[in-house]
Design a protein around this nucleic acid. Structure first.
Lengths: 352, 352
DNA sequence: CACTTACGTGGATACGTTTTCAAGCATCTC
DNA sequence: GAGATGCTTGAAAACGTATCCACGTAAGTG
C-alpha cells in the first residue's frame, strides 16, 4: 500500500529542489540536462502532481462546473456530451449538477461549486438574474448555454441592446434589476421558430399553438413575433418542466381548443407530451394536428410519423460553451448564436 | 472585489483561535457561548469553508466520480440523475466523465480522477479487469453500475462463487487474471431476458435473435441460457456502441436472416436501431417481426406501436450505487441486484 | 580584466483547512 | 486543601503544490 509519490520524492530522487521539479513539469525553463533527469525520475516513480496541492496554491480549482436542468432530457444529454468532449481534450475535470429546473436547487448547487472553488461554470440557467448575481460577483466565469436567465421585466428591446455595454460588478448601485452581462451560446430561436411557423402557414394552418416550458421566454417571444399581430393567448400554454406537467399542458390545450390545427413544441419533452396527449385524445398526426418539435433527438425519427423538428446543435452548443469558459480572457464574443435547421419529416400535413 | 473570508478572518473577528472555529463548524465540542459567537460571526461574514484546504489536509477530495459510456443514451441519463440525486442530498460534488465506451478513454479518465484525488468512483465499466486494477490498487472505492468489467475468460461458475472471498491487492501474484472484487449494482438481467424470451416463446416465436452491444456479456449469456441448448449463433449479433454500428448490426441481421420472427435488443440504442432498420427494410412491427427492448425510456411509448420493454430502474440503480460508494465502510453488500419488469406494450405479436 | 546581463537553481513561503498536543481552568474526590 | 479529572481552548504542524527571491555561475560587453 504505497502512497502516491509527491513532488518532494521526485526532487530527492532526482537530486534537485522541488522548485525545479515544479518548473520542469509546468513547462518552465530548465537546462536540458536536469529536465531530462527530472522527467525520467518522475516517470519511473509514476509521479502525478496532486491537483489538490496545486489548486490550493493557486486558490482555484481547475476544470469547470456544469449545471443542467435534467439529464433525462436528451437535449441536455447532448449538450453535456459536448462540454465533456471539450473538457476532456483540455484535460480538465467537470463537476456536474442537475437542477431539476428549480432555482432554489440551482442556487444551492452554485453555493456548492463556490465552496469547491470551481471558478468556471457553464449553465443552463433556471433562476433569474438575482439567482446568478452572487455567482458572478464571487468572480466566477460563467457562460450560459441554451438560454439566458429570465429578466424580471424585459419588454424594451433597447434595454437588450444596451446590455452589451453594461458590466455588472459588486459596486453597482441597483444590482438586482440590472441585466447580467455574461457570455452565452444559444440557438437562433427566433429564426428557428419563424421558419417553423412559416412552414406551417405555408401548409395552410391558421390556428397554431405553442407548447412551452420553463425558460423558453425567447422562443415564446419569437413565436409571438412570427404569428403576428393578433395573438390568440389561449394558444400559448406552458408546462413546468416535468413530464407530467408537460402532458397536462398538452392535453389541456388539445381539449380546450379543438379548433387548433398545428402545434409547435418548445422542446423535446414538450414534443413527447404532445404526441402522447394527441394519441390519448385520438388525434391523428398529422391528419388532425400537425406537430413540429424543437430539438432533434434520435427518437424523433422513431415516431410514426417521424417528427418534423427544429434541430439545434446541442453537442456543438456544449462544446462552444466549454471553449468560451476556458478562454475567458478574450472578451470578444459576448453571445454566440448557433444556427437551427428545420428538418421536415412526417408530422406536418396540410390543413384539412 | 473582496476575497472570500477564511477561517482566519472568522477567528479574528470572533476573538478565538482558528482551531475553535474549525471545531465549531465541524460539530466538535465547544462551550455554548463561543459556539454561538463563532456561528454568528461566520454567518455575518458569509464564511464558507474552502473545500480546497480541507481536501488537501485530509488528502482526499470529497464527492465522487461518475463514469458512463454516453450521456446521449437515455438510460445513462437516468442513471446519472440517480447518482446526482443521492450526491446532492449528501451535499457532495460529482465529477463526470463520458468514456464513449472506449477502454482507453476510460483509463485516461481514471487517471484524471486519481490526479484530482477523487477516491470514490461509480462507473459503468467499458474496460476489463486490467483497466480497473490500477484504480482499486490506488485505494479508490469503486462501485460498478449496470454492468461488470469483462472477465477475460470466465466460463467456470465456481470461479465466480469464489471471487467473493478473494481480495485483490497490490501484493497478489497474478493480478491481471484475477477477478475484481468490487461492489456493484446491476439489474437482474437473467430474469429480465428469461421473461422476455418466455413471453416471445409463448407467442409462438421460434427464431429469436439477440441484438447486443458492448458490455452486455451477462445479457447474452442469459439469452443463450433462456433459448436453450441448440443456439443459432447467427441470431446473436453485436454493435460496437455507436448508433451507426447498432444500425448496421440490426440491418445486417434482418437481411441475413429473414426467417427470424422476433428480436430482443440489449439496450435502448440497439432497440432504436432495430426499429429504424426494420422500417427501412419494410418489416412491420409486430406483424413481420416482434421486438422487445431492454431499458424503458420515455420515448418507448412514442413509437408506434409502443415498444414492449424490459424495464430496469436506471435512476434507482444510480442512487443505490451512490449510496454504496458513500457508505463504503459496511462491506456487506457485494453486489445488489435490482428487479426488472417486462412491460408489455404493442411491439410483440403472435408468430404468423 | 571588471562589470553587467542572463539564466539555472533551490530555499522559503503561502494557500486554508484539520488535527494533535499541551496548557489553562473549573469542578470533584478523598 | 491537595490532587485528580474533565472540559474548553489556541498554538503549531502538517497536507502538496507554485512562486518569489536570492544566490550562484556562465556568457556577453566595455
Amino acid at each position: 500500500m504505497d502512497k502516491r509519490a509527491t513532488i518532494k520524492d521526485v526532487a530527492e530522487a532526482a537530486g534537485v529542489g522541488v522548485a525545479t521539479v515544479s518548473r520542469v513539469l509546468s513547462g518552465g525553463s530548465a537546462s536540458r540536462q536536469t529536465r531530462e533527469r527530472v522527467l525520467a525520475v518522475a516517470a519511473q516513480l509514476d509521479y502525478r502532481p496532486s491537483a489538490l496541492g496545486r489548486n490550493l496554491r493557486q486558490r482555484r480549482t481547475g476544470g469547470m462546473g456544469l449545471l443542467v436542468p435534467d439529464l433525462t432530457d436528451t437535449f441536455y444529454g447532448q449538450l453535456a456530451e459536448g462540454v465533456l468532449a471539450c473538457a476532456r481534450s483540455a484535460g480538465e475535470p467537470v463537476v456536474l449538477g442537475s437542477t431539476g429546473g428549480d432555482p432554489e436547487q440551482e442556487a444551492e448547487l452554485i453555493g456548492m461549486l463556490l465552496e469547491q472553488s470551481v471558478d468556471r461554470l457553464i449553465a443552463v440557467p433556471s433562476g433569474d438574474a438575482e439567482t446568478w448575481a452572487p455567482a458572478i460577483r464571487a468572480g466566477m466565469t460563467v457562460v450560459f448555454a441554451d438560454r439566458l436567465p429570465a429578466q424580471p421585466d424585459q419588454e424594451d428591446p433597447a434595454a437588450t441592446a444596451v446590455s452589451d455595454l453594461m458590466l455588472l460588478d459588486g459596486l453597482s448601485a441597483a444590482p438586482q434589476s440590472r441585466p447580467l452581462d455574461v457570455p452565452a451560446v444559444v440557438a437562433d430561436d427566433r429564426a428557428g421558430i419563424r421558419t417553423a411557423v412559416r412552414y406551417l402557414r405555408g401548409l395552410g394552418h391558421k390556428r397554431i399553438a405553442f407548447l412551452g416550458g420553463p425558460g423558453q421566454d425567447r422562443r415564446v417571444a419569437a413565436f409571438r413575433e412570427a404569428v403576428g399581430a393578433p395573438v390568440d393567448e389561449e394558444l400559448i400554454v406552458f408546462g413546468t418542466g416535468s413530464r407530467d406537467s408537460a402532458y397536462a399542458a398538452a392535453s389541456g390545450l388539445f381539449q380546450s381548443r379543438p379548433d387548433l390545427s398545428a402545434v409547435v413544441a418548445g422542446g423535446n419533452v414538450l414534443g413527447e407530451a404532445a404526441v402522447l396527449a394527441a394519441r390519448e385524445l385520438d388525434l391523428r398526426v398529422p391528419r388532425d394536428v400537425s406537430l413540429v418539435m424543437y430539438d432533434d433527438v434520435p427518437w424523433a425519427e422513431l415516431c410514426s410519423p417521424p417528427l418534423t423538428v427544429i434541430a439545434q446543435p446541442g453537442r456543438d452548443m456544449g462544446y462552444r460553451a466549454a471553449e468560451l469558459v476556458l478562454r475567458a480572457g478574450s472578451r470578444r464574443p459576448r453571445v454566440v448564436v448557433l444556427p437551427t435547421e428545420l428538418i421536415i419529416r412526417g408530422s406536418c400535413g396540410p390543413h384539412r
